[in-house]
Simulated scan of single mutants.
Amino acid sequence: MDGIARHLFDLGYKPSSAKLYISRLGRFSEFLGHNARSTVISQGVIDRFMLSLHVGSPRVAARTVIEHARNIVPDRFSTPARRVIADPDGPLLAAYLDHLRHVRGLEPKTCEGILKGARRILTWLRDHLPGQPFSAITGEHVLALMQHLLSLSANHYTRSATTSYTRGFLRFLRWSELNGQDLARFVPRTPCWRLAHLPPRLSWQNIQRAIDAIDISEPSGTRDKAIMLMLATTGLRNRELRVLELQDIHWRTAEVIVRRTKGKRDRVVPLLDEAGAALADYILHARPRVVSALVFLSYSPPARPFKCAASISRIVRSRLEQGGVELSGPAGAHLLRHSLATQLVQQRRPINEVADLLGHRSIDTTAIYVKVALPQLTGVALPFPGGVS
């Protein structure tokens, strides 16, 4: 019992929460004394204990602490045999993932999206070519497949991505000698004009108002203020913020080393005074006391790093809404990144400087922000033919 209590405190549970879980574990121990005939706790005994709890809330707490106990003393529990459902596409997708990672050199996050697309393709092929090998796929099948996949796409971005991952998967089939034809040539090309829209953005006044409205009397407020300022002043991507480590902050030089970036190269971004002060306040006074090299941690027990991008996006959107900022679309880390880039371009900062700050490998990626630099654009606009009538 003492070991489990220490385990809960090490994970960052509050004393009140740990006390609740320990009480549930004590109740489970008392139940075992009357109902368990063996020293090894079976899943059946756990299920009977859950049924003895007539309210839903105690069941949740009991289930949670029993799982913690299972992790600490696994020899006291019998592991139920899990039914493994064979995945007919598993071996092929595993080979495709190996191809994406080691032949094409793609990042794991990119591979996740491509594998989802490949699974959609395999599902369609199984429904329309049941029991037939990949060598039976023809150009006619590819056209029918694309008609189905494109019908599921909502805009030209998803349509372009759909044709791209389909073309890549068909090339993999040929590369792995599962189909000798060049089926990728039957995939139509869908137009996608990257510079045809304006990037979503907020004014610095709105961002500053939202940051000033954060209540830093609570630890979560201190953390969220640091997150908002880091995103708004450095242009970090969502993942770059989540994997930021304590050793990457160079306080004396007021710099942050951004590692494992989308462009596969490290870069240095400046740490402004306001962002540095908020970050130091969070690390010294509000950061959970757990063993982790990462800077930003979740307060939901057990305290741990943020695993998914949605967690950071929820924080950004919530803080913007609480600050009275009207949002007309998705709001996450990238909205603050777009806003910073737009602000720098409007301040007539060199475009290559903006590209270096954002970590763009190609300056063409940064060119979209030039479209919102109206003062500069009016200076290079040609006069209307024939003059003003």
Rank of each mutant, 00 (worst) to 15 (best):
L244V: 11
D47H: 06
Y21K: 06
R209M: 10
L122V: 15
R70C: 02
I312R: 00
P301Q: 02
T162H: 04
S339C: 13
H102E: 15
G329I: 08
A303R: 00
F186H: 15
V291H: 04
A226V: 03
L294P: 03
A278P: 02
P130R: 13
V325Q: 10
A331C: 11
R287C: 03
V269P: 04
R260I: 03
P88K: 14
T166K: 14
L236N: 09
V370D: 09
Y96K: 04
G323P: 05
G386R: 08
F169Q: 11
L143H: 06
I315Y: 01
N238I: 03
I207W: 00
L377H: 06
P130K: 15
N179Y: 03
R189M: 12
P15F: 12
A118R: 10
T222R: 13
R27W: 07
I363F: 11
M1P: 06
M146Y: 10
G221S: 10
R194Q: 12
S151K: 08
S160C: 07
G386E: 11
A86E: 15
R304V: 04
S17V: 01
R317N: 13
C111M: 11
P270L: 15
A232F: 08
P383H: 01
V73E: 12
L357K: 06
T190K: 13
K19S: 13
W193R: 13
R349V: 15
G359W: 02
L358A: 00
R83K: 11
L198G: 02
S313D: 09
S29V: 10
P330Y: 01
H360I: 04
V345F: 08
H34G: 04
M230V: 02
P270A: 12
S164W: 05
P375I: 10
G56V: 09
R267H: 05
A333H: 04
Y369K: 05
P133Q: 05
C192G: 01
H102R: 13
N71K: 08
K225E: 03
D224C: 00
I368W: 10
L25Q: 06
G26P: 03
K225H: 01
A213I: 04
L271C: 09
S16L: 11
A280D: 07
R59P: 03
P219N: 08
L170V: 11
P130A: 13
S17G: 05
P383M: 02
R126L: 08
S389C: 11
Q247H: 14
F31Y: 15
H68I: 14
Q147T: 13
S38D: 15
T366N: 04
R24P: 10
R70M: 05
S292L: 00
R104E: 12
K116N: 14
F172R: 07
D281W: 03
G235A: 10
E326Q: 14
A5P: 09
Q205K: 07
V73N: 10
D182V: 15
T222G: 07
T365I: 07
N206S: 11
V354Q: 09
T222D: 03
T190Q: 12
L382S: 15
P288E: 00
A118Y: 13
V256Q: 04
T158F: 05
L357G: 00
D356H: 09
S220Q: 13
A373V: 02
E245M: 03
A69Q: 02
D47S: 11
